[in-house]
Amino acid sequence: MTARNKPNGPLTGWLEAGSELVAEQLAGVTKQVNAHIENQQRTIDELQARGAVLDAKIKQALSPATVLDNVEQMVKANPLWSLVPTFNNKGAKRAEQLDALSAKVDLLVEQVALLAAKEAKVKAEKLAAEKLKQAEAEAVSSASTETVVKPDDDKLATPEKPTRRPSTRKKTVATTPKVKTRSVSTAKPPTRS
Rank of each mutant, 00 (worst) to 15 (best):
M1E: 09
M1T: 14
A3Q: 12
A3E: 11
N5F: 12
N5W: 06
N8G: 07
G9C: 06
T12S: 08
G13T: 07
W14Y: 11
W14G: 10
W14N: 09
G18M: 06
E20T: 11
A23M: 03
Q25I: 10
L26N: 06
G28R: 08
V29I: 13
V29M: 03
T30Y: 01
Q32P: 00
Q32S: 01
H36L: 10
H36R: 10
H36K: 12
I37V: 14
N39R: 10
Q40C: 15
R42Q: 15
D45G: 11
L47A: 13
L47M: 13
R50L: 13
D55S: 08
A56L: 15
I58L: 12
Q60T: 12
A61E: 04
A61G: 09
A61I: 08
A61Q: 03
A61N: 07
L62E: 12
A65K: 03
V67T: 05
L68Y: 05
D69P: 00
V71K: 02
Q73L: 12
Q73E: 12
Q73P: 01
Q73F: 08
N78P: 01
L80G: 14
W81Y: 15
S82M: 12
V84S: 15
T86F: 05
T86V: 10
N89T: 14
N89L: 14
N89W: 06
N89D: 15
A95P: 05
E96W: 07
Q97A: 14
Q97N: 14
D99E: 15
D99T: 13
D106V: 13
L108K: 09
V109P: 01
E110Y: 05
V112G: 00
A113Y: 00
L114Q: 09
L114H: 03
L115D: 02
A116Q: 13
A116F: 01
A116M: 02
E119C: 01
V122C: 00
A124Y: 03
E125C: 08
E125H: 04
E125L: 03
A129L: 06
E130M: 11
Q134T: 11
A135D: 14
E136R: 09
A137L: 04
S141E: 14
S141D: 15
S142I: 15
S142H: 14
S144N: 11
V149L: 09
K150P: 02
P151K: 05
D153A: 15
L156R: 06
A157T: 13
T158A: 07
T158Y: 04
K161P: 07
P162D: 10
P166T: 03
P166C: 00
P166S: 03
T168Q: 06
T172K: 04
T175C: 02
P177G: 04
P177I: 09
T181W: 05
T181F: 01
R182I: 07
S185C: 00
A187D: 11
K188V: 06
K188N: 06
P190R: 01
T191I: 08
S193K: 12
S193Q: 11
